[in-house]
């Protein structure tokens, strides 16, 4: 569904992505792990067109979307759940979702989203700034889903959430996977990644240095963790 190859991205003179390759199959979840500052967010932002890559291909269902402006990438079917959630603070819950709803959703209608996230339904007329971190995260996911995406990019959704809320989030992501939503999940929370991923990538200094199926990752994880993930 999404095929990224040889992605190079710069911030000014900083060569942040140095040839990122990754692949997500239809209906699967790929987790990207890695220490702070290795370029996970930059990868997501490059795919999304917010930090356009200098080089490389981002092929979505057969079309190379690398270098497109981000609104066209969104319209092509990539949905974005950013690091830090980026909820519109002065818009209500419903309005936050409506911003993303350019055409009426076929699959993920607002009614369906409120079924999936009952906590949001109760707070539909509250402002984004009045929500808890967990509620904001759910809203960010709902806002992405309402576009009926082909691929959803989630950047550290568990960040700053209490363990109980992370478990709830894992349930939601699992449910979405069961419904066939293709996802790229950037995470530092290994438990969450292991609970939902089909494949695991590990990133070090702007490159993917490891990729494996979840089963293999779990087998090798002691070795892999000490090599790439712990400090």
């Amino acid at each position: 569904m999404l095929n990224v190859s040889g992605l190079h991205t710069f911030y000014g003179p900083g060569h942040i992505l140095q040839g990122v390759d990754l692949e997500i199959k239809q209906g699967q979840v790929a987790a990207v792990l890695g220490r702070n500052g290795v370029g996970k967010t930059t990868t997501v932002r490059s795919i999304m067109g917010i930090a356009p890559p200098k080089e490389g291909r981002v092929v979505l269902g057969g079309t190379d979307i690398a270098g497109w402006p981000s609104h066209k990438i969104a319209r092509a079917g990539v949905a974005y759940v950013p690091e830090g959630r980026m909820i519109f603070p002065d818009l209500t819950v419903v309005e936050n979702i409506e911003v993303a709803q350019r055409v009426r959703a076929q699959k993920w209608t607002i009614e369906r989203l409120f079924e999936l996230f009952p906590a949001l339904a109760e707070r539909r007329t509250n402002k984004g700034s009045q929500l808890s971190g967990g509620e904001q995260q759910m809203l960010a996911v709902a806002r992405a889903l309402v576009t009926d995406p082909k691929v959803m990019l989630l950047d550290e959704p568990s960040q700053g959430l209490a363990p109980l809320v992370v478990r709830e989030l894992a349930n939601v992501i699992t449910r979405l996977r069961d419904e066939g939503v293709t996802m790229l999940l950037v995470e530092q929370n290994l438990k969450l990644a292991e609970a939902v991923a089909d494949t695991v990538y590990i990133m070090v200094k702007g490159r993917m240095v490891y990729d494996a199926s979840l089963e293999r990752f779990i087998e090798e994880q002691d070795k892999v963790k000490s090599k790439y993930l712990t400090l």
Binding site: M48, S70, H71, F88, V99, A100
Partner: peptide, 12 residues
Amino acid sequence: QNAEMVQALGTD
């Protein structure tokens, strides 16, 4: 409130 986010949600 957040132009970059609006753009990433599909609006020019």
